[in-house]
């Protein structure tokens, strides 16, 4: 008979790493999404080109390759990262590239009328973006951001390949030591699912709060 409690503890420790990676990866992805998404809408050609290059590159190459670059190739250029840093970097940059298109699309979806009202009220470009366009666009971004965050959560599993002991890594360890596949992988199946559920609940709540009053019913 196997004493599972120790092994489950191991998986839970891995779960913490997964949560950590997800949170930090999402934070970086969010920042990158806004920088690159707004960069693509810039009046300056250089900024647009830079943002486009970033987006196309990170969407066009796999997260797996990006992670290996971050962890194994960057040190050759003198940047040595811990596995966690490499993981956050690769995940954040990769998902941020997808998020950038979400930001761009949402900003463009705000009608001309809102821009014109801002001109008539003599707001600057920055004020217009900050106070009028982005607050409305953000609400439109949220459902897709939710998908992106869940994608990022699922993608964290690849970091086990650079020996970061996340939940998937620990599940493999447990499997190797106990010979049982069902218990460790059943456990992480449930844990991943619960984490994804937590993300969508969180975003849904945020969405509801921000949408308050917009439809004239809830206030």
């Amino acid at each position: 008979m196997i004493d599972w409690s120790g092994y489950l503890g191991l998986i839970l420790k891995g779960a913490l790493v997964t949560v950590e990676l997800t949170l930090m990866g999402c934070a970086l992805a969010l920042v990158m999404a806004f920088i690159a998404g707004l960069g693509r809408l810039s009046r300056h050609f250089a900024l647009r080109a830079l943002a486009t290059a970033y987006i196309e590159f990170f969407r066009g190459t796999s997260i797996f390759v990006q992670l290996f670059w971050a962890y194994f190739v960057l040190p050759l250029f003198g940047f040595t990262l811990t596995p966690l840093q490499a993981g956050v970097l690769a995940l954040g940059l990769n998902v941020g590239a997808y998020g950038a298109e979400v930001v761009r699309g949402a900003v463009l979806s705000i009608g001309k009328a809102q821009y014109e009202a801002c001109v008539a009220l003599n707001l600057t470009r920055y004020q217009r973006m900050r106070h009028i366009i982005l607050p409305q666009a953000f609400l439109i971004m949220l459902p897709t951001f939710c998908n992106n965050a869940i994608e990022l959560l699922k993608a964290t599993a690849v970091v086990s390949l650079i020996s970061l002991s996340d939940m998937t890594f620990e599940a493999q360890v447990v499997r190797a030591q106990t010979g049982s596949t069902l218990v460790p992988f059943g456990t992480i199946l449930i844990l991943y699912f619960l984490m994804a559920l937590a993300i969508s609940r969180f975003v849904r709540t945020l969405e509801k709060r921000l949408a308050r009053g917009l439809d004239g019913v809830r206030v």
Partner: peptide
């Protein structure tokens, strides 16, 4: 200043 046909209020 200008007032528009469709008001253009800020809905948020």
């Amino acid at each position: 200043g200008m007032v528009f046909q469709l008001f253009n209020l800020f809905p948020h």
